[in-house]
Structure formats: structure tokens, C-alpha cells
Amino acid sequence: MKNSYLFPYKYKKIGLLLFVAGFTLLLMGFLFDVDVELSYLDIKMPVIVTNPLFSERQYFQMVETNITHQIIILSIIIGGLLFGFSKERVEDELISDIRNKSLVWAVYFNYSLLIISLFILADLDMLAMIVFNVFTLLLFFIIRFEWKKYVLKKTSHEE
């Protein structure tokens, strides 16, 4: 029980902040076509492989790119991990049981959705789905875990 692979409780809030901020920006950019790119994030970045749209794949290049999306993705993933995998205020075996079950549930749900998408989406929409799938596992896990904790709290308050 000592080695639980969890972050300290204090990271929970900062995790939520990063996760929500990142997701808001991502959805604004993707769904509502808001330009979230900041011009001062245009940088030259060293990459190992790059495959430009109209030319051959190149190796070990400096590419000019805007890193807004890298930062947004980083914020969602780091934030989600911190929020989902920080200890609770009272971290006990019931909470770890709920966390484990939520994780299993989220993996099943996430891949079920992906399998369904294979048959009902095509082309760019399928591509968008796969992009979103980078975050949905974390998202479903967090929603399920928080919901189960809420239900637990509510049922034990009723008497």
C-alpha cells in the first residue's frame, strides 16, 4: 500500500486547473474555429522526423512551428494525470478500489466508443475522433471517478 504511484493531494487543484484550461482552449480551437495560436509561440524547433505536406520526409531538421497546440496538449495530459492520480484528502482502500474500477471502466468505455466510431465515422471525422482519443481515456476516467465519489458521498450522507 505504501507504493501507490499517486501524487500528493495538493496537486489535485492545479491538475484540475490545467486540465480544464487546456480542454477549453482545445475545444475552442477545434469546434468553434477560434484562433488560439499565440504569435509569440512561433519558434524554430529541432525535430527528429518531419513529414511536410508536399515534400519528402526529412530527418533532424529545424522546423518553424507554432507550439500553442503542443502546450495545450501538454496542459491537458499533465493536468489530467495530476487531477486523476493525486491522493484524496483521505486516501484509503475504498477510494483506491473506486479509482481502480473507474480506470477499468474508462478503458472499456473509451475503446468501445472508438470501435463504434470506426463504423459510423469516416475520413476527417474519424481522424478527429482519433485525435480526441488521446484525451478521452483520461476524461472518461476522471468523470467516472468523480461521479462514483459523489454517489458515495451522497449515499453516506443520507442518514
Binding site: M1, E88, V90, D92, E93, L94, I95, D97, T155, S156
Partner: peptide
């Protein structure tokens, strides 16, 4: 709950028979 370092909810679910605690 405080004496055995768990949450009140854990005691509640154990008493309700909804959760089987570890041996410890």
C-alpha cells in the same frame, strides 16, 4: 474512521455490507 485512518464513507459502506474491508 479517524482512529483507523479511513474516510467516514468507508466506515459507512462497510457497515452497510457494501464493501468488504481488507484484512488489515
Amino acid at each position: 474512521a479517524d482512529k483507523i485512518q479511513v474516510s467516514r464513507q468507508t466506515i459507512h459502506t462497510i457497515e452497510k455490507g457494501k464493501y468488504v474491508p481488507s484484512t488489515l
